[in-house]
Amino acid sequence: MQLVIDGIPCTAESGETILQVARRNRIDIPTLCHHDALEGVGACRLCVVAVRAHAEAVDAQVVASCMYAVKDGLQVDTATPEVRRLRQTVLDLLAARCPDAPEIQALRERMGGDAIDYAPAVDGSKCIMCYRCVRACEAIGCNAIAAVNRGPQKEIAPPFFDATQRCIGCGTCAAICPTGHIAVTETPQYREIWSQRFAMAQCAGCGAPFMTEATREHLAGLGKLKPDYFTHCAACRQRDAAARFVRVGT
């Protein structure tokens, strides 16, 4: 199907979102919660755009481009004054919620609009509730964390804020967090995340910690690869493979 984004005619497949089509055509739409591999949640509202049903339509509707499936003949404007203002408001609100998140402050400065300083949160964390960690955890198959509570009290946590068997301590949530909100403590013996301690698995070759025991069990338990795949760290595996190749070749 055909649609027009910022005056540029674009071709799209049914089921694609405006954001996908825009990015393929190198039209920039800012996002915070969007991730290519994860199901859209439409939480941050930074990616809002104005859409009209067809070229002659007068009434524009503001939609989240990460969720809105394209339609034939759709007219999209990614940077109307209204859209810019809404994005500015979103960033102003997030900046007040997370005064200590430099990523948000930087994005806000880059917008360059008329910023409004809202009352900063006194207990401000760095969490912008983008749900990336929750969705990544779901993708891995653990579902160990979720958004709990409501309204401004909403936060990401394991069930009942307690240790949970579902968590494998893989650290993906922390790695995918755009603001560095999720705390991870690492020692050679253990990794601590979500106030839960995970024993590290030691490499059978060099003895270095290379993943948590629980992660190893999880990966082995997937049944996609043989369990003995997960005994050595990457460096040892490469060293051993080199020795094997040389031996085979001589």
Partner: peptide
């Protein structure tokens, strides 16, 4: 999503 599964999985490191 930065889960490092691939790092763990490659049999040749």
């Amino acid at each position: 999503i930065h889960c490092q599964s691939c790092v763990a999985a490659c049999p040749f490191g």
